[in-house]
Nucleic acid binder design. Structure first.
Length: 489
RNA sequence: CGGGGAGUGGCGCAGGCCGGUAGCGCAUUCGCUUUGGGAGCGAAGGGUCGCAGGUUCAAAUCCUGUCUCCCCGACCA
C-alpha cells in the first residue's frame, strides 16, 4: 500500500528496514554493525527507559555508573564468562595516533601495558568494586542498575535486533542468601514481563534457558520470549541467577550473623535497544510503524485542512484549542502547521511513523463542531463531536493499547502449536513456524541434534508450563514437561 | 568468515558488455495555481559514480584491493 515500504509477505527483512527508514528511527553508520539512533527512535528509547526506570526504583533499585573500559585480566577471572565473551570483544591496545604523510597511524610507542576491554557486559568491573563495598551482612543487599552502552563484536548485525554497540540497562545485585538472590532474579523477570505486556503490548513467555543457552557465568538464566510476525522468536530480556560464581572470582565475602565469612550471592538482568526491534516487529504493518500509546513519543497529531488564508487562520485556532485541551488531559500531541505538504502526504507520513491517533480538522468539521479521528492500528476513521474530545481520546488511547496487546496475543496463539512427534514438529516448523511446544529428554545432545537438523532452538522451559508426562519427540525418553521451541532472531 | 546480490545528487534507479560532455523519477529552492489520502505548471540548484590503487591520451565503465549494506550459512545475552 505504501509507496516506500515493501510488503511483509514479499520480503520481511526488507520490510523491517523500510519501516525503520520511513519512521526515521535509525540509520546505518559508517562503521559496520553500528547504528545512528535518530530523534524519533531515541524518544522511543527514552520512553522505554522512563517506564523501566520507575519500575526499578519502585522495586528498591538505585542507578549508578561503572566504566566503559575493563582491564583485560578481569574478564578471565570467571572461567565460563570469559569463554562466552572472549570471541566478541573490542580491545583497546593503544592510546594515541601519529600523523604521517597522507594521514594518521597508530603510534606504536603508545601501546598499553595492559589492554582494555570495551565492556560487553559489566559483571566483572562491578564485582571488583563490590569487593570493597561489602564486609558485613549489613552491607547487603546491594541493588544497583546502570544505563549504559556495551559492545559485542557480532558477525552478523541487524538494526536494533543485533548491533555491535547497543544501549541497555544492566542490573547487578548482591545478596546474603541464595533464596533472596533467586527471589530477586524472578522479581526482575516479572518486571520485564509486566513492562513488555503493559507498555509494549507485546505478549511474552517467561521461562528458563537450557544449559547451552545460558548466560556465560550464570547458574540459571531466565528469559522473556516474544514471537514476531514472521514466526521467529525474539529473546526480549534476561534475568540471571549467578550463584556465587562472581563472588568467588572476585573474592567478595561478607561476615554473616553467625560470624562466618561467606561468599555473596549475585544476580544480573538486562534489556536493550533490541526491545525497539521487537516493538516494530510485533505491531507494524505494510503502512509502516505502529506504536502502542504508552510508548509513542507523540500520541496524537492534528492535521488542519484548508483552502484560503482566512480558513487557515480559523482552523489553526480551532486546532490550537483542541491541542490545549488534549495537553491538559495529559496527552502528548503535535499540531502540524506545515504548509508545504498536503494533508494526504501528512496522513501517509504519520502512518509510517506509527502515531496512534490522527485528528484531521477541515472547514466541514469547523462548521459542524466535529473532528475526523483516525486510528493507526485499525486505520478506521470516524467523525466525532468536538465536545468531550479529550475524554474520548484518553479512553481511546487506552483502548488502542489494549487492542494492540490482544491482537498480538491472538497472532501469537495462532502461531503456537503442539507437536507430539519429530515428524510433526518438522512439518509445523516448515509450514507455519512460530512457537512449538514439544517434549524433550533434557539432554544437550538431543537439543543440538534438533538445532542442527531444523534450526529451531529451545527458547525456554516455560515457568508456567503445565506438568505433563510425555516422551521426547526425538529419543522417546521420558519428559515431565513440554518445552518451547522456535527459530529465533 | 564461506556462498549469492548490491553501492551512481537527499531517496529510488538507468548507463557499464562495447572507455570519449553523467542522465531519469521523486525530493529541494523560487513563482503562480492548489490543499478532506502521497497536487499541477514553469524555472533553478545539487553528483570527487562507496573508497584506494592500476591500465589508458581518456575510467562510472576495464583490472586489483578494500569498506559498507541485503539474503543464505557458520556464530551470537
Amino acid at each position: 500500500m505504501s509507496k516506500h515500504i515493501t510488503n511483509r509477505d514479499k520480503d520481511y527483512s526488507q520490510w523491517y528496514l523500510d519501516v525503520i527508514r520511513e519512521a526515521k528511527l535509525a540509520d546505518h553508520s559508517p562503521v559496520r554493525g553500528s547504528m545512528i539512533i535518530r530523534p524519533t527512535g531515541y524518544a522511543l528509547w527514552e520512553n522505554i527507559q522512563a517506564a523501566l526506570d520507575k519500575m526499578f526504583k519502585d522495586t528498591g533499585h538505585e542507578n549508578a555508573y561503572f566504566p566503559l573500559f575493563i582491564p583485560k585480566s578481569f574478564l578471565s577471572r570467571e572461567a565460563q564468562h570469559v569463554e562466552g565473551f572472549a570471541k566478541e570483544c573490542a580491545i583497546v591496545t593503544h592510546s594515541r595516533l601519529k600523523s604521517v604523510e597522507g594521514g594518521v597511524i597508530v603510534d606504536p610507542d603508545s601501546q598499553l601495558e595492559e589492554e582494555l576491554i570495551v565492556r560487553p557486559t559489566s559483571e566483572t568491573i562491578i564485582w571488583d568494586a563490590y569487593r570493597n563495598w561489602i564486609q558485613s551482612y549489613r552491607d547487603l543487599p546491594i541493588l544497583i542498575n546502570q544505563w549504559a552502552n556495551v559492545v559485542r563484536w557480532e558477525m552478523r548485525t541487524r538494526l536494533f535486533l543485533r548491533t555491535m554497540e547497543f544501549l541497555w540497562q544492566e542490573g547487578h545485585t548482591a545478596h546474603a542468601s541464595k533464596e533472596e538472590a533467586i527471589e530477586e532474579t524472578l522479581k526482575m523477570l516479572n518486571v520485564y514481563k509486566t513492562f513488555a505486556e503493559e507498555f509494549m503490548a507485546m505478549p511474552v513467555i517467561t521461562g528458563i534457558k537450557t544449559a547451552s543457552e545460558r548466560f556465560a557465568g550464570a547458574v540459571e538464566t531466565y528469559c522473556i520470549e516474544a514471537l514476531m510476525q514472521d514466526g521467529k522468536a525474539l529473546q526480549a530480556g534476561t534475568s540471571h541467577f549467578l550463584g556465587k560464581n562472581f563472588a568467588k572470582a572476585f573474592d567478595v565475602k561478607f561476615q554473616d550473623t553467625d560470624g562466618e565469612h561467606k561468599y555473596v550471592w549475585a544476580t544480573s538482568w538486562g534489556v536493550s535497544t533490541r526491545l525497539i526491534g521487537g516493538l516494530i516487529m510485533t505491531h507494524s504493518d505494510d503502512h509502516g510503524l505502529v506504536l502502542p500509546p504508552k510508548l509513542a513519543p507523540t500520541q496524537v497529531v492534528i492535521v488542519p485542512i484548508y483552502r484560503s488564508d482566512e480558513q487557515r487562520d480559523r482552523l489553526l485556532e480551532y486546532a490550537q484549542t483542541i491541542m490545549d485541551e488534549l495537553k491538559e488531559a495529559g496527552v502528548s500531541v503535535k499540531l502540524d502547521r506545515r504548509e508545504n505538504v498536503k494533508p494526504g502526504w501528512k496522513f501517509a507520513e504519520y502512518e509510517a511513523q506509527g502515531i496512534p491517533l490522527r485528528i484531521a480538522v477541515g472547514p466541514r468539521d469547523l462548521e459542524n463542531n466535529n473532528v475526523e479521528l483516525a486510528r493507526r492500528d485499525t486505520l478506521e476513521k470516524n467523525i466525532i463531536s468536538r465536545e468531550g474530545l479529550a475524554g474520548h481520546i484518553s479512553a481511546l488511547l487506552d483502548t488502542i493499547q489494549n487492542d494492540l496487546f490482544q491482537a498480538a496475543l491472538k497472532r501469537r496463539d495462532e502461531r503456537t502449536s503442539f507437536a507430539d512427534s519429530y515428524e510433526e514438529f518438522k512439518n509445523v516448523l516448515e509450514q507455519k513456524g512460530g512457537f512449538i511446544y514439544a517434549h524433550w529428554d533434557g539432554t544437550e545432545e538431543t537439543e543440538k541434534k534438533i538445532k542442527d537438523e531444523t534450526k529451531a532452538t529451545i527458547r525456554c522451559i516455560p515457568l508456567d508450563g503445565e506438568k505433563e508426562e510425555g516422551k521426547c519427540m526425538v529419543t522417546g525418553k521420558p519428559s515431565s514437561q513440554r518445552v518451547l521451541f522456535a527459530i529465533s532472531y
